[in-house]
Design a protein around this nucleic acid. Structure first.
Lengths: 255, 255
DNA sequence: CGAATCCTTGAACACCTTCAACAGGGGTGG
DNA sequence: CCACCCCTGTTGAAGGTGTTCAAGGATTCG
């Protein structure tokens, strides 16, 4: 932060503590709810003290108490391999929900850890279910969000199953750019909240490969990277790197 | 089928066409519903003519009309990469639900194709939502199933992100064995409904690698493979292959 | 200012892929 | 019923992408 400071490094502090005036309301569970429904959700959304970097929202194996909405900051979710290594399964930004994978069995199968100072809303599930009768749209919206998460996971499976290291990096950058844009920031410039280690872990690559490819994309003039700060200089060309029309050399076996 | 015929090659024809007497009721959306709720679901579950091998339940881009429960047979789901290659995202067995990833946006982001003769129940979503008031448990159960699908996807992401080719194959076999066992068949013997191509695609491996590893696991005495027929000879040892306590050689970078 | 952490870069290596050829079934048509 | 062909699966050898190992540089924080 001694150098340039893209907008997303400032915390997106919602104007107030209520859903109704939350700046990222349109992205959250609250999207398309009417004022009455918003008020109902407000009543049960507990806000916790902000998490500091490295703090856990929940651990693997914890009983499900609530699902959580990110208000500001960011969170990584991860599972553990049988031999105890971490697999990063997702990056959550303001407006995203965390913990949906615990609803099935009542136990968190993955952990959520703050990547920076992060504030959240806790949505106690049992009280959420109590709303069902009076506010079916909340329930319905929750199902939508879960379905979108399934879809996102399928995209990530495709990334891990079919794409070259270069494509994975390019797609991550485009994904982040799009999500920051949805939140009102520039498509072209943002700060990575994940470390190189987390990025490599998330993309199924060695950390050295991540570093090398950032350097390469920079040498090609597509992006500028300096530590966590990323600038996309040529969005179109980056897209053509991420999704080449002709299959890359390594792709035939999977065809 | 000229050789041995494990039980799962016989179609699991439900005794009757009603949910109440469906043999796989406990695995499906119907698990833990009371007779009244079962009857409600029965009313709207339309049964379609069985799909033949290669037939699609829906294509990518189709509008969401219903989600589907598998009654017998099996189905693969897949998405397309930007350059038009297929990525197999899942294998669905009797009792599993298909199409949940379409609820979010109303459009199927992935396709579902029968791997063999397959019969299904269609659950029209709009009529399902109409049940919400009278049968909230169905809605709740649907959320559970979706959450479990998220969890399954996370496991598959871990497989693709962290595991060696050998581990991927071993885990696939164990996964299938477990699911067939849940459906009342032997853990030790079953028929693959996926081709080698589909298996490789699903596991992010070249088809030749799949073939070689089947051969290797057979040489080690862990399994016996002949075309689609698989016998697990040493379940414990296969488990230790799938989840070694000490990280494999290729794993350090992801640690 | 020093230590720890994170990131970068280089070189050797390994796993898996690619390319190539062949074997075996299953279906079709003569 | 057999010959033929196509498709699926197998096996071998060479090659490549990404990993591993190693070392050095940069940043941050106490």
């Amino acid at each position: 932060m001694t150098t340039t400071t893209p907008s997303n490094v400032f915390h997106i502090e919602p104007n107030t503590r209520s859903c109704k005036e939350c700046r990222i309301r349109q992205l959250c569970l609250t999207a398309e709810l009417n004022p009455t429904e918003l008020a109902q959700l407000d009543c049960l959304a507990r806000q916790r003290r902000p998490l500091t970097r490295g703090a856990h929202l929940f651990h693997i194996g914890d009983p499900l108490e609530a699902v959580y909405a990110i208000r500001s900051g960011s969170v990584k979710t991860y599972t553990l391999t049988p031999d105890g290594r971490e697999q990063v399964t997702g990056l959550r930004l303001p407006g995203d929900l965390v913990g949906l994978d615990a609803i099935g069995r009542g136990i968190h199968p993955s952990a959520a850890e703050a990547l920076e100072t992060t504030s959240i809303c806790a949505l106690p599930l049992n009280r959420l279910e109590g709303l069902k009768g009076s506010a079916p749209k909340i329930q319905q919206r929750l199902m939508q969000v879960m379905s979108e998460e399934i879809q996102d996971n399928e995209e990530h499976i495709t990334l891990l199953g079919k794409q070259s290291a270069e494509q994975r990096i390019a797609n991550l950058l485009l994904n982040l750019a799009k999500r920051y844009q949805l939140r009102g920031y520039s498509v072209h410039e943002f700060n990575l909240s994940m470390s190189r280690t987390d990025i490599g872990n998330y993309l199924g690559l060695a950390i050295e490969t991540v570093s090398r490819l950032f350097t390469r994309l920079q040498e090609l003039g597509l992006i500028s990277v300096e530590r966590k700060h990323v600038r996309i200089n040529d969005l179109e060309k980056l897209r053509s790197f991420a999704s080449p029309v002709d299959a890359p050399a390594t792709a035939r076996a999977h065809a």
